Simulated scan of single mutants.
Amino acid sequence: MSTLDNNRLLKYYEAVNEGCEQAMQEDDSVFLMGLDVDDHKGIQGSTLGLVDKFGPERVFTTPLSEDAMTGVAIGAAMAGQRPIHVHIRMDFLMLCMNQLVNIAAKSHYMYGGTVQVPLVVRTIVGKSWGQGAQHSQGLHSMFAHIPGLKIVAPSNAYDAKGLMIQAVRDNNPVIVMEHRLLYGTEAYVPKEPYSVEFGKSRVIKNGNDITIVAISSMVAEAIKAAELLAEQGMNAEIIDPVTISPLDSTTIEKSVKKTGRLLIVDNAWLNCGISAEISARVAESDIITQKVKIRRLGFAATTCPTTPSLENVFYPSPKSIAIAASLLCDPSNTWEPTEQQCELAYQKNFKGPF
């Protein structure tokens, strides 16, 4: 990450906000739309103040009609504008699936390269305070399956700003997957505009015993798990893919070649997911010659429950990550960290949107 402005901490939602603001300042064709983007909460602060800076013609709320409004955004992008379309929950991208998959992703190809769709779709993944079956889903693998769509998953405020600016500058449709639980987390963020490159994984922590690939909010959980593992003499390497599509698997493969062990922790179900894709790429790798031990963690194979006690079992956690990694390193190990050791500050501080 950049060392510029190393005394300037921003929260994740502030970084998203600043990324949108600077992209709009850079290019008058950029506008922001979505349900309640101009209300007093500003999508938990991520759009707060933008209507005051740019006016209601460039920052405006939309009807609760995901399919129609996505069509408006795609049409505007085809006409030369650069819309940022905010969807408060990723679950309801299902209501505009045809627009995204059959129109946004394919128009450049179908019109022989004469049409571009520079559309940014901001979509938020939920967790905690009982969101249940229809408000907690990580559906990024569905969209990563489609050629023509780019999927990014910032795990920190630095990437949240840089990926937002890069997404707006890109001439292809980009889905930015934000995790609500990360909104209050802080990182050092330069004041000036900058971009984060698509398709380049980041090694968060170096290690020799096991490679842990973590998606979105699972990066923070994996870092905590690695701290617990270190106390037991195990040195984990943590990799954040940063972008889901394009996916930089080369960085992951080089790490696995070194460690011989791979744990993938996704903020989604395992079946046909990004964890399966990463596992397949490692299995097919030309640079890995030894036998590799692989395990995946993600949502439990059921719909998301609403009660906190069941949520704790549904989602991966620092405890489950640490135990899985420990067993990959030593199958005979019976060590388990305590719940108190596994507490994360960002989880304790999260209060929900109300």
Rank of each mutant, 00 (worst) to 15 (best):
K200M: 11
K200N: 12
S201D: 06
S201A: 15
R202P: 02
R202D: 13
V203L: 05
I204G: 06
I204P: 09
K205P: 05
K205V: 01
N206S: 15
N206L: 12
G207F: 03
N208A: 14
D209T: 08
D209Q: 04
T211Y: 01
T211L: 01
T211M: 07
I212P: 00
A214K: 05
I215K: 01
S216N: 13
S217V: 12
M218H: 01
M218P: 06
V219S: 04
A220W: 01
E221I: 06
A222V: 07
I223E: 10
K224W: 05
E227D: 14
E227Y: 08
E227L: 10
E227P: 04
E227Q: 11
E227V: 03
L229N: 02
A230H: 08
E231A: 13
Q232N: 13
Q232S: 05
G233L: 11
M234W: 09
A236H: 06
E237P: 02
I238S: 03
I238P: 01
D240G: 04
D240N: 11
T243D: 07
I244Y: 04
S245N: 11
S245R: 11
S245E: 04
P246N: 06
T250S: 15
K254G: 08
V256E: 00
K257W: 11
K257C: 13
K257R: 13
L262F: 00
L263C: 06
I264Y: 03
V265T: 09
V265I: 11
V265H: 03
D266H: 12
N267M: 13
N267A: 13
W269M: 10
N271C: 14
C272W: 15
I274R: 05
A276Y: 08
A276N: 12
A276Q: 12
S279L: 08
A280M: 14
R281Y: 11
R281M: 11
A283V: 15
E284D: 13
E284K: 11
E284V: 06
I287T: 15
I288F: 09
I288M: 10
T289G: 09
T289M: 13
Q290K: 14
V292S: 08
K293M: 14
R295M: 12
R295P: 03
R296P: 06
R296C: 08
R296I: 07
R296S: 10
